[in-house]
Amino acid sequence: MRGLRLLRAPAALLGCLCVLLFLGGTPAYAHTALKDATPGPGAKVAPGADVVALTFGRLKSGTTPKISLVGSDGSPVAVGRPEVADDSVVCAAVTPLRAGVVTLSYTVVSADGDQQSSAFQFEVADGAESVATPSACRGLSLQAPGAGGENGSILGLGRTTALVAFSVMGVVVVGGGVIVVRTMRGRRLTGSGRTAV
């Protein structure tokens, strides 16, 4: 009997340590999880909403979140460049929403550098309640949709940057072609001169 009592204490202590290790070792994945949204996942809103807002935990400063919307017909909805308010609320102006199911996709970077991407859907329907611009977004001067934001980009670059890059690439290709042609002509002339001698 006494031997069983002596074994129970270490077994109970070992069980407690295992529970503590299991609970203490669980990683914290929820720090960038979506906490609130306007319109929110599964919400039903009236047509005409022109601002979306997503609330997270603290986001990394200096990073630009990405937001994209797709209408029920599969066509993209123009989105202006997202802005961050209060280090946690992402606001973006969008083309006034039309009736149908809208899919919103986002990518954000938390304060510790972890990136999270996800998506959700909401419905825009006649007769539904209008959605007001969230208070955190009201003081921001949001870029108009299609004014050089995500939808005005080419291969992920700003329109101006992309045009400059393509121009430089064009000059390099044309210049390289001219050099190759001149080199080939020079070799031919040198070769024909040797034949004549």
Rank of each mutant, 00 (worst) to 15 (best):
I179H: 07
S110A: 10
G177E: 11
T55H: 08
P10W: 04
R58W: 02
A147N: 09
G25N: 03
R8E: 10
G42V: 03
D86L: 14
G42R: 00
P41I: 01
P96A: 07
A119L: 07
R182W: 09
L189Q: 14
G177H: 06
G177A: 11
P27M: 05
V79D: 11
L97P: 08
D73Y: 06
S117D: 11
L142A: 04
T103L: 15
S88I: 04
R187H: 10
V109W: 10
D114E: 06
L7S: 10
L17V: 04
V109G: 03
E129F: 06
G149P: 00
L23P: 07
G80E: 13
V124L: 00
R5S: 14
R188V: 13
L17F: 01
V124E: 02
S118V: 02
Q115E: 14
V168M: 11
S192H: 13
R2T: 13
V171T: 12
L54M: 10
L34D: 04
A165S: 13
F122M: 06
T195V: 15
F122S: 10
G146M: 02
A78D: 05
L4R: 14
D126T: 08
L59F: 05
Q143R: 06
A128V: 05
G15I: 10
V181Y: 05
V101M: 07
R182F: 12
A49I: 06
S88T: 13
A119M: 08
I154S: 12
D73L: 03
L155P: 02
R185G: 02
R188W: 07
C137R: 08
C16H: 04
V181H: 03
S167N: 14
A49R: 12
V168Q: 08
G186K: 00
G156M: 01
D36C: 06
V197Y: 14
G127E: 01
T103F: 04
S192V: 06
G127M: 01
R81W: 02
L21D: 12
N151S: 13
G193W: 15
M1D: 12
P10H: 10
G148F: 02
A9Y: 05
A30W: 06
G177C: 03
R138D: 09
G148N: 06
G25I: 03
D114P: 00
V131N: 10
T64P: 07
E150N: 08
R58Y: 01
T63V: 09
Q116P: 00
R98D: 15
G80D: 04
P47L: 04
G48T: 03
V101K: 12
A125M: 08
G139P: 09
M1E: 09
P10A: 05
N151P: 00
A162M: 07
A125N: 02
T32V: 14
A128E: 04
V168G: 04
L7K: 01
A93S: 15
G100F: 07
